[in-house]
């Protein structure tokens, strides 16, 4: 098994763990962490598969750097929303989807 494939498979496993967490964990912090794990999995695959004959390809490295910046921004927004939700409802989880029946807020 080549190193590249090993990286890729590990990345895929991380992606799967992240996906499961995102879908199954009700707690918002866990969901946000799960999204970061999912993202890390993708970055690993990008860097892992990006190697050619042992030499390092700079382009995926640049992409991952950009991706990390984007992920941090997304995480920050998610945390801000989660915090707001905690203030509004006292809970760190999404309420049941009752949007059809909900009364008007304002």
């Amino acid at each position: 098994m080549s190193a590249a494939l090993l990286y890729a498979l590990t990345g895929a496993a991380l992606f799967a763990i992240g996906l499961a967490g995102l879908l199954l964990q009700p707690h918002l912090l866990r969901k946000i962490l799960a999204f970061n794990i999912l993202g890390s999995g993708v970055f690993l695959i990008l860097v892992g598969l990006g190697q050619r004959d042992g030499t390092i390809d700079p382009v995926p490295q640049a992409m991952v750097l950009t991706g990390i910046v984007v992920a941090i921004a997304a995480t920050a927004l998610a945390l801000a929303l989660a915090r707001q939700l905690l203030d509004l409802t006292g809970q760190m989880r999404l309420p049941e989807d009752r949007s059809d029946a909900e009364p008007v807020d304002d």
């Binding site: 999204f35 999995g41 990008l46 998610a78």
Partner: peptide, 23 residues
């Protein structure tokens, strides 16, 4: 919040696809 999680998952899938293509 729900929209954010959905859209992040969507772009995660996109980026994974991009990684496979680049690989």
């Amino acid at each position: 919040m729900r929209y954010l999680l959905a859209t992040l998952l969507g772009s995660g899938a996109w980026l994974l696809g991009v990684a496979l293509i680049y690989g």
